[in-house]
Amino acid sequence: MGWVIAEFPETREILVDDKPQGPNRWPNGEYRTIIIDDGDHTFRLGPPPDGTPAAQKLVVEKTSVLAPLHVVFTKV
């Protein structure tokens, strides 16, 4: 069981292995922590395509609900 936050300055859909997981932020702007199984996954953001990198392949491991993996995207 792994926990992940996708950081990006704006609200975007999070895609894990091309499957949508909902937005990366709550309506109040707070980041959302999502649940993903441990292992190798590819993270992308949904449109508009103004984030970089376009995709990140990372291993989710040794996370907890209070210490999630932060997958960071920056605005182009």
Binding site: Y31, R32, I34, P68
Partner: peptide
């Protein structure tokens, strides 16, 4: 810690 916050869960 008033004002501090944790990132919200799904």
């Amino acid at each position: 810690c008033p004002g501090a916050t944790l990132p919200g869960l799904a």
